[in-house]
Design a protein around this nucleic acid. Structure first.
Lengths: 212, 212
DNA sequence: CGGACAATTGATTATGCTCAATACTGGTGG
DNA sequence: CCACCAGTATTGAGCATAATCAATTGTCCG
């Protein structure tokens, strides 16, 4: 299994930069741009600010002291993150690729239905729980690919900005098992790889059957 | 692996019974009593009511079409459950042992800080995610026992009202592996079993080290 | 005391992990 | 433009952990 250290994942490049006023008519929250790999916040950091992904993608993860890593979520454009109980973050957040975020000073600054947002996150977490607890490797991959396809809204085409390591740590597998499971799905003509990070779902129906 | 069916878990004994007025001075919500094994609500049921455990214990779980089951949480006295997005439950809820619940007509009827409650549940789910994704069998057991001990507030004594099947489905293991992992912890003098469902934590420090 | 269910223990198998080697990819410089 | 290099991904062989199948043993009730 790939093992991680906090140091190895330290962010050398994070920078906060005010952005020009956007096209939107309403007043905007301050914004920030992060390089690929840049840390947004760390476990233990004082919490408060809320973030919404404008462009790019963010990984949220928890790190065990021996370096094992669990990615709890990938945040895509539109997604909100940074909510924490008791004033202190219990997750790391990092930009997977170059990313732009809207930053809100507090939960209250969000305009939408915060309760619905939280309930949605809870629902997602419970699904993920089922995948990790009760699905086999290929099924986990299928679940991940279907989820990414749905969220990207690009039909049967998925692209994966994150590395195999990120995917493995999200699915509770190793990179080798991710690779082999993808190969297996491809042999079964369920997906097709156009390069490692661009995947076409050939039989979404069967894939859905694998995860219920 | 133990495989479940919805039918097998059907609740023959659920009954709603108004309780006498409690000692508490403020007006009370209607209450209900459930036999061991009784269904409280099912996946797909119309949601709305909120429950708080008064006595007993409740399991929440998701069921896959082939019978695999993932228990997402055990609710102990004081815990609130039944929150669902979009008007429809996505989990089953059942009484593990004889259980009494306070029933609230809606989320708004809860007096406490609902936001903090949801954030807490999210935090718990993320912890559980890490356990399922990145811990070995014995480590999962350790995590579960420490959690139960902390929540029961009985120091180093834990009692387990739920069966090995429930524990296995909570930890993403089989009952045999749960049994063997307990035996292993016992051989290492970390715990001691007084009967299958009463466990003493002999070395909580080391157990904590196993889960970080 | 007996019966049914729950839990443990044993033997074997299978899935995914580890260690290792090879192949691919994208960016850089000759 | 192409060769090279570093990082990333794939593939292979053997191993370890947990699952499966099966047989006891233990426990709670009636």
């Amino acid at each position: 299994m790939t093992v991680h250290s906090t140091r190895e994942f330290a962010a050398p490049l994070a920078n906060l930069a005010p952005l020009r006023a956007p096209a939107s008519p309403r007043p905007v929250s301050p914004a920030a741009r992060f390089e690929a790999g840049a840390r947004i916040f760390s476990q233990g950091d004082r919490a408060g600010k809320i973030y919404r992904v404008k462009a790019g993608i963010v990984r949220l993860y928890r790190l065990l002291s021996d370096g094992r890593r669990q990615v709890t979520a990938f945040c895509l454009p539109g997604d909100v993150f940074g909510l924490a109980p008791e004033g202190s973050h219990h997750l790391f957040a990092e930009a997977v690729e170059e990313t732009q975020l809207a930053v809100y000073p507090a939960l209250e600054a969000l305009d939408g239905d915060v309760m619905a947002l939280l309930l949605g996150k809870l629902f997602t977490a419970q699904n993920h729980l089922t995948v990790l607890g009760r699905h086999q490797a290929a099924e986990r991959l299928a679940s991940f690919l279907l989820d990414m396809a749905a969220r990207q809204g690009t039909g049967t085409r998925v692209d994966l900005p994150m590395s195999r390591t990120d995917i493995a740590d999200y699915l509770g597998l190793t990179i080798e098992t991710v690779s082999r499971s993808l190969a297996k799905l491809q042999q079964e003509r369920l997906v097709r790889l156009n390069g490692a990070r661009h995947i076409e779902l050939l039989d979404a129906e069967t894939l859905r059957g694998m995860v219920e």
